[in-house]
Each structure stands twice: as C-alpha cells, then as structure tokens.
Design a protein around this nucleic acid. Structure first.
Lengths: 101, 101
DNA sequence: AGATCGATATCGATTATCGATATTATAAAA
DNA sequence: TTTTATAATATCGATAATCGATATCGATCT
C-alpha cells in the first residue's frame, strides 16, 4: 500500500456519488464501471456502502424488474447532489494546491 | 462517514508525500499542519505510515538534535518525488473528470 | 420440479485505524 | 545529582473497515 493507491481507495467511494449523478445504476454495473477505471472494490465493501448512502439519504433506491430480474437501481437525491458539490469543491482546492507545486 | 470524509482520509496520506517535497518535517509538525487543514489523523496511523514510507524508500529519515531534543526529520527521496508526480497526474485526471460534470 | 443465471446480501478472516498510554531523551529545577 | 517537566516517537488493545468467498433470492428454461 502506497499513498497513491490509498488515495484511490478514497476516490472510489466518492465515485459512487459521481456516477449516481450521471444516471441510475445497479450494483454490478457500478462494480464493472469502477473496474474499467482500474478501481477495484469488493462486494463486501460496495454493498454496505450502497446501503449506507441510501440510509443517509444521499442515494434513493428503486427496485426494477429488468427482463425478469430484480435490480436495485440507485439514483442521486438532493442531499446527494449537494454532497457531490462539496466533493467537487474539495477536489478543486486539492487540485490547485497540488498544481502550485 | 460519508464519501467526502472518506475521500479526505485518502488525501491525508498523499499529503505526507506532498509536504515532504516542500521541506523536511518531523511527526508532530506534520500532524499539526494537517490539523490546520482540517485533516485529523491519530498517532497510531501517522507513525506507522512514516515508517512504512521510509521503509518503502519514498521518504528518507534523519535524526536531528534540535535544542536538545531529538527529532526525526523526513524528507523526500527520488522515488518519493516520482510517486508525487503519479499522485499529481492522477489528481489531474480526477479533476478533469469531475469538472465535466 | 430441478438447474441455471444474474444480481444482491452476508459472514469470517484479515487488515487498518483510533486514541490512550508508554517510552525515550534532554534540560531545567530543586 | 536526583527529580520534574517537556517534546517527540513508538506501542498496544479495542474498534471498524475491507476483502473475497459463499449464500441467497427470484425468474426463466428444459
């Protein structure tokens, strides 16, 4: 474990909010999407986070029947939208700070 | 715990490399500097990381006698410098990605 | 019904973190 | 010289997070 990979781990969670904002997703889709960006996360981390973010009001969950399969689709809420902008503002600060160097 | 605070946790570790690059520091100074930026980290996390980063060759450690007190000063190495630029490049990607939204 | 498939949930083991306490080294005070 | 204080680093047990394997669930196919 090094600082970069540790930093990426934190970014994964932020990305859950990021993606929810673009379009509703379900667990497996998100996991694969994150993997495409070299973000590995295990089910045992992902699903508890989805539940936590739903319970905290950042995400809304809706079960949908897709070709006979039940999928839980997660979408952004107003609180989640608000939180995204906090993340974005923080990321801007961080970026500027690092760019000075 | 929410995505932003989780993300910040990851940034704290990246900041160890970031600060080492500016000037050599010792543990207590770093802890206070991080705290000034609202980054709380406990000793039990900080010191193991300093040791780990030194063992991994990202930081070099030198003991100095400052007004009679022994302080361990940590400074960046070539490998650490290289790693910083990886973090920076990654942060740029992340920033661009978020700015599109 | 039984098998299979796609998806979500759970569980035990491992690892990381926290925060309180211990240790070390020096200097100043009594 | 022995205490006492102080600044810094290191350690340790308890808690929390993560991993990855496995279980479960519901729908469809044969």
């Amino acid at each position: 474990m090094n600082p970069l990979s540790r930093f990426k781990k934190g970014a994964i969670i932020a990305h859950i909010i990021y993606y929810a904002r673009k379009e509703p997703f379900y667990g497996v889709w998100l996991k694969e999407e994150l993997a495409r960006h070299d973000y590995k996360i295990s089910d045992g981390t992902l699903y508890p986070w989805l539940a936590r973010l739903t319970n905290s009001g950042y995400l809304a969950m809706e079960e949908k029947n897709v070709e006979g399969k039940i999928r839980k689709y997660y979408s952004i809420t107003d609180a989640g939208e608000d939180h995204f902008h906090k993340i974005k503002r923080y990321l801007e600060e961080l970026y500027k700070e690092y760019m000075e160097q």
